[in-house]
Write a protein that binds this DNA or RNA. Structure first.
Lengths: 250, 250
DNA sequence: TCCTGAAGTTGATCTGCATCAAGGCGGATG
DNA sequence: CATCCGCCTTGATGCAGATCAACTTCAGGA
């Protein structure tokens, strides 16, 4: 089992916890919120820590509060494929299954809002729109996974990198600037070159080369290794191979 | 819109329809079943017909009764990636979304049990375990999609082919022979070489070559182009790159 | 201050799969 | 029966990305 510390903090109420808004109780009544309050607790992890190993017993479900975590699968000989990126408000774990299917790792410092599985399942049984909300989120994840399948199966290295940068940029834009972005966009890469490679089905050398190429071609600018500026989002999207009408900020 | 014919047949009751068992109403009360009966109808398609195009309005959700359908995504320049294979009892469509995200194509003759979306959503709102059942199924699909991401991102062509054959063999075995398989296993490939290629992120030539290679190495036998015999399932699984303890018949 | 190690870059070379091309096979159709 | 066409196989060649290797950058620690 991974090391972690619990920070059950009654003072830190669900107002800080995105599960309220996205995962569970968008339409909850006050007494249902109360039930959620009673079974929830927080866990925090340091960057690089493993939250849970594939196959471990997982007696909770959780929602990311702050930080970034990854889901990865590993083959016996060490080949790794990232199968999901967990951002604040994303949900981990599945009701009805007690063991984890993937390695979950904190790539940055991470705080999660956890619910013990048993009481959560009971709450779900008695509160219909929790299951509906989870269904909606899971369908979104399934769509994202299928888009990723297209990327992994059919896109070139350059298209893969451009797609990843576009995804990170889109998320970052919607977090920081609710209004439409017109000019340049600057953000920090939350992943190492190797993590990007594991996400994209490439090697870290190819990732590095393609980033250099995009920089050489003026599609992106780099400040240090991690800080990226995108002068024109349209020019970046042209490199992704996706339909032009991609709905960048919808 | 694709051509189809409706076969609203009051005589053909839900007993023939896998949605009863897997998708919707495993624990339904009689009156809920009655509601489902009222809003359901059947559609059938011929092999090769497109059920729905990506972006089309989709005013129903459905469950496959017999036959096989595929979900594919296509890039502007024609690169294609299959993102799902729909077998009997699998579910298509998502409550809360009115347009299709993928092309759905019948690869064999196909019968689907459809429910108009609006009444289905109303039923879902009033019947909690329908949402729970759908959630469970969607989580299974998500797991399958993530396993496929590992295949697409990290497996070699030979491993991809072996994995696909293993998946088809497993499904076929569980349909035909509930008891454990000990000896050889024979089945027909439901996909053309090109469809396999689109599923695996390869070209049809590579698919053909790798199948020939597996045959040459005695992992499989071929009778004609489509009929496959697997003398030893373990020897096939050795070629997939997956953990040995894969739980072939669980 | 230097040392150390993790992260990243870049070059040279190799190779697995794509691409291009030429048939083969089997079933439908006149 | 011949012909045609979709599906498949096999060979020759090319290239994108993997692999192997050397070097740079930078942050942290003694």
């Amino acid at each position: 089992m991974s090391v972690h510390r619990d920070i059950r903090s009654p003072s830190q109420h669900c107002g800080d916890c995105p599960i309220r808004h996205r995962a569970v109780c968008a339409r909850c009544e006050a007494d249902e919120l109360e039930l959620l309050e009673q079974i929830k607790y927080y866990r925090s992890y340091e960057a690089g820590q493993t939250v849970i190993w594939s196959g471990d017993k997982m007696d909770f479900v959780a929602s990311v509060v702050t930080g970034i975590a990854t889901l990865t699968q590993t083959m016996e000989d060490g080949r790794r494929q990232m199968v999901g990126l967990l951002l604040p408000s994303d949900f981990v774990g599945r009701p009805g299954r007690s063991s984890a299917a993937y390695d979950v790792t904190a790539t940055t410092d991470l705080v999660m809002c956890c619910f013990r599985r048993k009481p959560f399942e009971e709450l779900m049984a008695s509160t219909p729109h929790i299951a509906q909300r989870l269904l909606e989120m899971t369908l979104d994840e399934l769509d994202a996974a299928r888009e990723w399948m297209l990327l992994l199966g059919r896109k070139t290295a350059r298209e893969k990198i451009a797609s990843l940068l576009a995804i990170i940029a889109r998320r970052d834009a919607s977090l920081k600037e609710p209004r439409a972005q017109t000019g340049a966009l600057t953000f920090d890469l939350p992943l190492t070159r190797e993590e990007m490679a594991d996400y994209l089905g490439l090697t870290l050398e190819t990732v590095s080369r393609q980033i250099s190429a995009l920089k050489r071609d003026g599609i992106i600018q780099l400040d240090g290794k991690r800080q990226v500026t995108i002068p024109s989002i349209d020019r970046l999207l042209d490199q992704t191979g996706d339909d032009s009408d991609g709905g960048f900020l919808d």
